[in-house]
């Protein structure tokens, strides 16, 4: 009996891979880039200070601190936001939200609206500057107690919240 179900259900597009995922707003890439730049800044400053102070005198060649840090930061600024952005996606179904994230450690979560306990719409200062919001769905499960989807336009996030809220029933436990 379960075989029949299995065949029948394998056809559903959602059962497939990354197709059918909606990308988040491109501004999210910029937000990621700025976040990475801000994270890299202290390291750059530290390396520059070491370079200027030269505690090891001439024992090490110049640029040994700033060089690698600059290279790493450059790599992360250039490649990383793009890959993270591409890995990020969602699919708003009739009764469920699917959120995919992560490049190396990939996770692909589906939360049925009927299991949402409450919804947050968060807006950090950076996100606000780019007109973005993060929607966070809270469930009663210990695992995935909160599932967040960043990089939504403000109005999209609010519309999504209203839609999900309409589905939440009082006693879903």
């Amino acid at each position: 009996m379960s075989d029949v179900e299995g065949i029948e259900r394998a056809k559903v597009p959602e059962a497939g891979g990354d197709e059918g995922l909606t990308p988040v707003h491109p501004n999210y890439r910029t937000v990621l880039r700025i976040t990475i730049a801000l994270t890299a800044l202290p390291f750059l400053v530290g390396a520059s200070v070491l370079e200027l102070v030269r505690p090891f005198d001439d024992a090490v060649p110049g640029g040994i601190f700033v060089g690698p840090v600059l290279l790493l930061a450059g790599f992360f600024l250039w490649r990383w936001p793009r890959r993270r952005y591409q890995a990020r996606g969602y699919d708003l179904g009739r009764d469920r939200l699917r959120v995919a994230r992560g490049v190396w450690w990939r996770s692909d979560t589906i939360v049925p609206f009927g299991r949402v306990q409450h919804i947050d719409v968060d807006r950090g200062p950076l996100e606000r500057a780019f007109g973005l919001s993060t929607i966070v769905l809270h469930t009663a499960g210990n695992h995935n107690a909160s599932v967040s989807l960043p990089g939504l336009l403000d109005e999209d996030a609010l519309a999504m919240r209203e839609e999900i809220r309409a589905h939440i029933k009082r006693d879903t436990l």
Binding site: R106, P112, G141
Partner: peptide, 13 residues
């Protein structure tokens, strides 16, 4: 059940 997640590390992918 409250949600279902498919998680993959680099090796698993």
């Amino acid at each position: 059940l409250q949600s279902v997640e498919i998680a993959q590390g680099p090796l698993a992918q």
